[in-house]
C-alpha cells in the first residue's frame, strides 16, 4: 500500500471526520492529542471510537494518535481504541521504554480486546528520542512507521524553528536513516504554514531527498502537493526501465558489468531501478 500522505484529523470535530474520505489521503490519523482541548479528551475518544465503528474506512489506513503514555488520558484512550479497532495507533514522544509499556498493556488487554494485528506508528519528537531512535524503532515488531515531530523537538531543544528548517537537518537525516535500517516507513514532520504552498513543496522535496517515504499533512490542501513531490516521474520511470533492459541484454551476452549512457551500472543502481519500476506499478 502506498503511504505517502497521512492527514491529521482533529478527534473532536465531527464535520472533519465525515468529509475525510474526499481528500484522498493514503492514511487518516484521528488525533486525540494536540488538537483536542484537555476538557474534551473524554468526548473526543468516544467520538473517534464511534466514527471508526460506524464507517467503512477500508479505502484508507486508519490510525489514531493517542495521548502520551505518561498522561492521565492514556489508559482510557487505549481501552476505547482497542474497542474501535483502528489499523494502527500512533504513539507520541516515543522511546524504547514507552513502546515497551504500550506492548505490555496491549498484551494485558489482548484477552478482552484481541489486538495481535494492531500496528504502531511512533513519533520521535524529543532530543533523546532522536538520539535513541534505533532502539525505539526496534522495540516492537508492531512498529511499521516513524514520524518526526519537528515542532515538539524544537521546543525540547529550545530553538526557534527556521523557515529553512536548519535545526532539523540532523534529526531528519537520522530518522530517515533509522527507518531505512529498520525497514519501516518514515514520514517527515508537518509543515505548519498551511498557506505557504511553495514553502511546503520545497520542504517536501527536501524530505524526499533525505529518504522519507512521505509527509504528514495537517491540512487537506497539502495532500496533492505531497503526492506530486513523491510521485515517480515519467523520466525516472523511463530511465529505470532502460537500465533494466540494458541489464537483461548484458545478461544475455554473458556480461557482468555494463554501461548505460556512459555510466557503469552496478548492483545498487540496478536494484534502485527495480524498486522504481515496482513502486510505479503500485501507484
Amino acid at each position: 500500500m502506498i503511504k505517502q500522505t497521512a492527514l491529521f484529523i482533529p478527534g473532536n470535530q465531527p464535520k472533519m471526520h465525515i468529509s475525510a474520505d474526499v481528500f484522498g489521503a493514503d492514511c487518516l490519523i484521528f488525533d486525540l492529542e494536540d488538537s483536542v482541548a484537555i476538557h474534551q479528551k473524554d468526548s473526543a475518544r468516544l467520538l473517534v471510537k464511534e466514527m471508526i465503528q460506524a464507517f467503512d474506512l477500508s479505502y484508507t489506513e486508519v490510525i489514531v494518535r493517542i495521548n502520551p503514555v505518561d498522561s492521565s488520558f492514556y489508559q482510557d484512550d487505549l481501552k476505547e481504541m482497542l474497542q474501535a479497532r483502528p489499523d494502527a495507533l500512533m504513539i507520541p514522544k516515543a522511546t524504547k521504554a514507552v513502546i515497551e509499556k504500550v506492548e505490555a498493556d496491549l498484551k494485558h488487554y489482548n484477552d478482552i480486546y484481541p489486538n495481535e494485528t494492531l500496528k504502531l506508528y511512533i513519533i520521535i519528537e524529543t532530543a533523546m528520542g532522536v538520539e535513541t531512535a534505533l532502539e525505539t524503532c526496534l522495540a516492537s515488531k508492531r512498529i511499521i512507521g516513524v514520524l518526526l515531530g519537528g515542532e515538539d523537538l524544537c521546543t525540547d531543544m529550545k530553538v526557534t524553528p527556521t523557515k529553512q528548517r536548519i535545526e532539523l537537518q540532523y534529526p531528519r537525516s537520522k530518522i530517515a536513516m533509522t527507518a531505512a535500517a529498520c525497514n519501516i516507513m518514515a514520514w517527515d514532520t508537518p509543515f505548519v504554514d498551511i498557506d505557504d504552498h511553495d514553502g511546503f513543496k520545497e520542504d517536501a522535496l527536501m524530505a524526499k531527498a533525505l529518504g522519507f517515504g512521505g509527509k504528514v499533512c495537517i491540512h487537506p490542501n497539502q495532500i496533492d502537493i505531497v503526492k506530486e513531490v513523491f510521485a515517480i516521474s515519467e523520466k525516472q520511470l523511463k530511465e529505470a526501465q532502460e537500465i533494466i533492459e540494458a541489464y537483461e541484454l548484458a545478461q544475455q551476452q554473458g556480461l557482468g558489468a555494463f554501461s548505460y549512457r556512459g555510466k557503469m551500472i552496478d548492483k545498487p543502481i540496478l536494484e534502485r531501478a527495480q524498486q522504481i519500476v515496482a513502486a510505479s506499478s503500485k501507484e
Binding site: 465531527p14 473524554d42 467520538l47 471510537k49 464511534e50 466514527m51 465503528q53 464507517f55
Partner: peptide, 17 residues
C-alpha cells in the same frame, strides 16, 4: 446535522460526565 454515531458519542459522553 449530526450523524447517528455523533449523536451516540455525545450522549455517551454526557452520561459519563
Amino acid at each position: 446535522g449530526a450523524l447517528d454515531h455523533t449523536i451516540k458519542a455525545r450522549i455517551e459522553s454526557a452520561v459519563k460526565r
